[in-house]
Nucleic acid binder design. Structure first.
Lengths: 325, 325
DNA sequence: AAAAATAATAACAACGTTGTTATTTTTATG
DNA sequence: CATAAAAATAACAACGTTGTTATTATTTTT
């Protein structure tokens, strides 16, 4: 069988309670004996038994991430980043792709210390006085847990202002515009509002979808528009990718002839055909906030809802430049 | 705090060991007292403590799925299906998107009973005498665990034969052909081999990638080919989607003018613009096999490598039909 | 109706930890 | 150099289960 603290105790000629303390860096054990115990433990290949620890401590230092809509790749980068963000904490993370109910059961079984939920599925969750944090649209918030969200309006404002400062006046938005998707709507509205503030005429092109292809296809319409824009704001990573490709195929120089700024601030923007200037809350930052929120929730264990809208930032790359005369 | 078997015992006026037996449906407890105990347990909202159970039983009935390359969406459907397949078993599943090493640690911490690994990351795994099953390419197998794989060659053979029987002689393959990706290569080679057996001339179009767009873009080349094919085999779900869209845009009647069969046997094929005839191991079957393999591995706990190549099947839908005269 | 066999329940020792209390050893103090 | 104080270690009771053994209640047998 596997080696326990009692085995170590025997080997090191101390009591097993001393071993426990040594292993937990308690100040109650003399430095020299701790050294010895640590060495013996290592030699014997000791691995602590979480179940036993958990039984007495009632803590697992594990967070469950509930992710029922696994096929939506947009979130994959975020999940990866959240997982990474936990690395600098004492916590680790496990995922479940089951239905919210089943996933909750599994997590409860393991007695995770807290849970992260994506807004889409959060409405099914009625888990009071259990540490929970949701990521997503905060509109309909009457939940009893904090919600982390990005300030989409602000994003668009920054993007438009950036292009304006580069001299652009004909700035188009390419994205999904005619939809019930709250997130998408917030983007378009943000764009329109920002344009209005600068007294610019808006020009939105509906992609009718969120895929690469939807962006690609919309470019034709955009180029034959009566008032051809000098700058484009792409509504998402995928859409912008399609737009970029279509422009490349028509040998349109970027950013000389046309500037492109994309929504979604993820590292993949760097490795596109042309490194893409983008706007949004950087995923790593977003991940960090989510992780902080859940840990805070666990460790302070105070209840109460709250909405945290994160401020986006613009990452300057090569796809946008000054307007050509 | 939460309610334990001791609380139930007190409430039901029996000893806690009787409660334990009743809860585990032991035949050693009288039917009537079991009824009572079960009722009391329900009333009190009893939830068993896995940690305690685990401590004595050394079993968790949980499988860990190690999935470091979360961004590759192709596998998402499979993961979802695996998760679903576990529903009919006593086991449940958790995921980790960490590096193989970190994930292993977390899973070990939880003392999962077994692990599922995708081939890409399996080479880093050196976990002897621990129940492990890998899914993926079986070529370089010198592992000490079973590998579940699909018979890609056989797939292509079936697809070609199917089209042949419908009267097609000019059958093209559209996919990623010039690559180091073993899986893709097996597909092309399978196609070529199958064509040769029927004495047909091969015609492969390289998509240079695996995305929707890569399929879409290749159609031009395909249609202007000297010997225009009457049937196409698409190399993957995404590629076929792009091909289909491109054909639709050119108002080419499917399947009257051109037949299309896609690789990847996933349910999403049903809901494409035109329900797609496809070939491959149905993902639910694949998932089932993987789940069976790991459970068998756990419960028989016999060591030894083995490779199981699953036989693909063709799912007939509307994208392929008899050749037109 | 007593003895034997069986069924039902209770008691209790694991499992591998942590944290509290009791004991021993070492160091400081008058 | 005793004695008090402090430091280090040991002992042991939790934690919530399961599974084995001991006890008690019920049936069966003679």
């Amino acid at each position: 069988m596997s080696v326990t603290i009692k085995d170590i105790a025997k080997e090191a000629n101390v009591s097993y309670s001393t071993v426990s303390k040594a292993l937990n860096n308690s100040p109650l054990v003399k430095e020299i004996t701790r050294q010895k115990i640590l060495r013996v433990a290592k030699e014997m290949g000791y691995e602590p038994n979480l179940a036993a620890k958990q039984l007495v401590r009632k803590k697992t230092e594990v967070i469950g991430l509930l992710w029922p809509t696994i096929e939506r790749i947009v979130l994959a980068t975020l999940v990866t980043n959240i997982s990474k963000a936990f690395e600098t904490t004492p916590y680790s993370m496990i995922l479940s792709v089951d239905t919210p109910e089943t996933a909750m059961d599994t997590f409860k079984k393991f007695q995770v210390d807290g849970m992260i939920v994506f807004a889409e599925s959060s409405h099914t969750i009625t888990q009071d006085n259990f540490p929970l944090v949701a990521y997503g649209v905060s509109g309909k918030n009457k939940a009893s847990y904090p919600i982390i969200d990005a300030n989409h309006e602000k994003s668009m404002e920054i993007a438009v202002q950036y292009l304006y400062d580069l001299g652009h006046r004909d700035i188009a938005y390419v994205g999904l515009t005619d939809t019930v998707d709250t997130l998408q709507n917030e983007k378009v509205e943000g764009y329109q509002k920002a344009m209005k503030q600068l007294n610019l005429e808006t020009q939105s092109f509906n992609t009718d979808g969120l895929n690469w292809f939807d962006g690609y296809r919309t470019v034709d319409e955009l180029l034959t528009s009566k008032k051809r824009p000098t700058a484009i704001i792409g509504g998402s990573y995928d859409i912008s990718g399609g737009v970029l490709r279509a422009l490349q195929e028509r040998s349109i120089q970027i950013p000389e002839e046309l500037s492109l700024v994309s929504y979604d601030n993820i590292p993949q923007m760097e490795t596109m055909e042309i490194p893409m200037t983008c706007i949004g809350v950087p995923v790593d930052e977003l991940a960090e906030e989510i992780v902080n929120a859940i840990i805070e929730r666990i460790e302070l264990d105070e209840d109460g809802d709250s909405v945290k809208k994160l401020t986006p930032s613009l990452t300057e790359r090569q796809s946008a430049g000054p307007v050509s005369k």
